[in-house]
Design a protein around this nucleic acid. Sequence first.
DNA 1: TTTTCATTCAATAAATTTATTGAATGTATT
DNA 2: AATACATTCAATAAATTTATTGAATGAAAA
Lengths: 220, 220
Amino acid sequence: MDIRAFKSSLYQKLSQVTKALSNAHRLEILDLLAQGSFPVAYIAKQINLPVANASQHLQVLKKSGLVKTQREGKYMYYELAGQHVFDTWCTLRKLGFAQNEEISNLLNDYRNRRNDLKTISSDEFNEMMNRQEIYVIDVRPEEEYEEGHIDDAISCPQQELGERINDLPKDKEIVAYCRGPLCLMADEAVKYLQKKGFEAARLETGYADWAAGKNPKPKN
Amino acid sequence: MDIRAFKSSLYQKLSQVTKALSNAHRLEILDLLAQGSFPVAYIAKQINLPVANASQHLQVLKKSGLVKTQREGKYMYYELAGQHVFDTWCTLRKLGFAQNEEISNLLNDYRNRRNDLKTISSDEFNEMMNRQEIYVIDVRPEEEYEEGHIDDAISCPQQELGERINDLPKDKEIVAYCRGPLCLMADEAVKYLQKKGFEAARLETGYADWAAGKNPKPKN
DNA sequence: TTTTCATTCAATAAATTTATTGAATGTATT
DNA sequence: AATACATTCAATAAATTTATTGAATGAAAA
């Protein structure tokens, strides 16, 4: 094989990985798997895709080595292949935000058009946590809370917020968090809580980023 | 617009960037543009593609904001849109190496099948440079050398090594470098020099990485 | 002004990716 | 053993991406 053909084959192989990252649904899957390990049906439901279709996308991700699987009974759990996959996803997410102003604009518009949602940075959050000034709620679906959550946070899925509203304190600021920067559940929750007269704010960072900072060495 | 549709559109926008990264030729173009700013015809020649085809790929990269252009007379110069694009490319390259063992294996096979090519790390290199123990040659095409090169390196394109061999010292170790980890020009050069009785080694890192380390703040 | 050259555009064919559907497989439960 | 359920497979249609070709554009040189 001549050098030119050899070089081409190297880039070809590299592109097998980038191709796996080139689909919107698959990016959304990766973003979801940053929350933990889930069966196909759950993933399909969350990203709003027929199960067969989701399964195919998951297999593309698996073939490229970005996710791995673990069978438990009749369920097949998919998870990120490692910390480096999450890191890559973060890099791409950041790149996307930088390149495509539309993305940041869409998000900002969305957030500002609603009430001015107070946002709390990680640092502020940690301090407030230490001083026990805040009541932290995890507004993601319970399945994700169970996969891992911020210490001392209470599970309070956005969907069920109405039913649980009586459990929440009126004398403490409530801080809600969700999956991450592309997730709007915390925004919706804060908006709702504010309307109901609670003092509420959104944690700037989502669970995935919090966990990545918290656990410098991944388990796998 | 409901939340679901809004979320989908966010990932859709993100995937516009990752789609631009999902083609082998475009990855090769980015890797080349990490060396500097070049006109379409040069890029096309280096990656062995018809000019019209290269132009189209370049436009895809431009539309996604990964590269930018500058016209000079009848030439259109393409360059990376910024340091962050190079950083992303490095991340993806690293991911590719990690995910796809084949890539590292192919490269290692290629290098080992030839003579054992001595490789020098960046740190060793800097020390040897300070002590003036080595003669550094840049074996990339001259156009790339002119776009920027390691201090004190002499341009000595791999293609022309045969003609220039009498200019090279026999009493000093010769260290060759090229574009980066996916480039084989330094390997070829070292192999050739060793055959001709020179003491030669390959710099582990290529120009792009050296420049990235050297210039913490990019110009643009 | 005409010619030359680099690049882009436009149209089409070829190749690849994605979505859809229903059947097949594998595991647990009855 | 039969049934239920989660997932995967397989086939096909639809959509998108890529390659190819030759013409069009834009800038410099003759």
